[in-house]
Simulated assay, not measured.
Amino acid sequence: MAVMSFEGLRTNNHAIWRRIAFAIISLLILLPPAIPIVFGNKVHWIKGWQMYHDAGLGLLKGEFAIYRGEIVIKRLSPLQVIDLQRYPFVKGISAKFTEVVHARADLKTYAAELCSKMAADERLAYAGLASTHDGWINVDSDDVCGGTP
Rank of each mutant, 00 (worst) to 15 (best):
I29C: 13
R68A: 13
P32S: 07
F89K: 08
S94F: 11
H53D: 13
I82M: 10
K47G: 08
Y52I: 01
Q85N: 10
R75P: 00
V72Q: 02
V43S: 12
P32Y: 06
L60K: 03
G69P: 10
M51D: 11
P32T: 05
P33S: 12
F89R: 09
K42G: 11
W49C: 08
G92M: 10
I93C: 05
I46D: 01
I29K: 04
G62E: 02
A55E: 07
I46S: 12
H44N: 09
G40C: 10
Q80T: 03
F64P: 01
E70R: 15
K96G: 04
Q50G: 11
A65V: 08
K42M: 03
Q85K: 14
Y67S: 08
K47I: 11
P88M: 10
L28Q: 12
F97K: 04
V90R: 10
W45N: 07
Q85P: 00
F64G: 00
V90K: 14
G69W: 03
I73A: 09
I71M: 09
A55G: 00
M51A: 15
G48A: 09
V38P: 01
R68T: 14
Q50D: 11
L30G: 12
W45T: 08
T98K: 15
L31R: 02
Q50W: 02
G56Y: 08
R75S: 13
K74H: 03
I66H: 00
K61L: 09
V72I: 15
L84V: 08
Q50S: 15
W49D: 15
L76A: 09
P33L: 13
P36A: 09
W49I: 11
V81D: 01
L31E: 05
G40V: 05
Q85I: 06
L31M: 12
W49L: 13
A65N: 05
G40I: 07
L57M: 09
R75K: 15
K96S: 11
N41C: 03
Q80W: 02
I66T: 02
R86P: 01
L31K: 08
T98L: 14
H53W: 06
L84T: 06
P32M: 04
L60H: 00
I82R: 13
S77H: 03
F89S: 10
R68I: 02
Q80A: 14
F97G: 03
I37A: 12
I73F: 02
